[in-house]
Design a protein around this nucleic acid. Sequence first.
DNA 1: ATCAACAGTTCCGAATTTCTGAACTACGGA
DNA 2: TCCGTAGTTCAGAAATTCGGAACTGTTGAT
Lengths: 114, 114
Amino acid sequence: MRPLFHPAVEDLKPEAILYALSDPERVAIFAQIAGVGSSGTCTALANLGSRVIPKSSLSQHMKVLREAGLIRGERHGVEMRNHSRCQEVDQRFPGLIQAILSAYGRPPGDANAG
Amino acid sequence: MRPLFHPAVEDLKPEAILYALSDPERVAIFAQIAGVGSSGTCTALANLGSRVIPKSSLSQHMKVLREAGLIRGERHGVEMRNHSRCQEVDQRFPGLIQAILSAYGRPPGDANAG
DNA sequence: ATCAACAGTTCCGAATTTCTGAACTACGGA
DNA sequence: TCCGTAGTTCAGAAATTCGGAACTGTTGAT
């Protein structure tokens, strides 16, 4: 398995962020990670909505969110812990995440607290 | 040609808006329309960036923007005049358009006055 | 050390979407 | 009517997405 790629703050691309959050399933995943604050494992995220997301699809979703710079994933033993990079994204693109989550009717949560 | 479809304000979907604006080419088109205020015809919009957009592709882009509710197109004689629906979108999703255009480094323009 | 279970990734074929040249529709003017 | 212009629709190629199966890497038990 190749190591996970995470873009630096200065390399964040608005198009990648918008694309990542143009899928309601990914928004649900991201909102959960941003809301809880951390430790969102893939298996815990697989059934947030009305269906169980197949794990290969979930892995792809996580990759899209990660490579857009929205989340950071760290391996802890056998599992992956994901936490949001809201603070960094907000530093680069002020208000963007909040406006998007609000549009989706997601409570702001700690979206601006990191 | 079938009549153009424009969603009502209450039918605007954040995923459609984010998807539409996850393509830099479409963002350039939308920013131009929102900035100028109106009367953006397709031929005038075809060469905003580094390449000339083929007219079939441009037509598709316009359709995506229109069906996301970001612009309104009206046929005037032989040409189509497009103007932004920023005001309506902003009413439904406050701050969203502005945050997105800012992230892309586009001046706000009359994005909130449109 | 070996084995089994678990969490997540990668592979790959099927389904869907996007792209764009060519054909087409619609309107206005001569 | 015939022509030119503005834009849409069609259709095939190219690219992307989806998801089951196989795989990798880690932990814990024997």
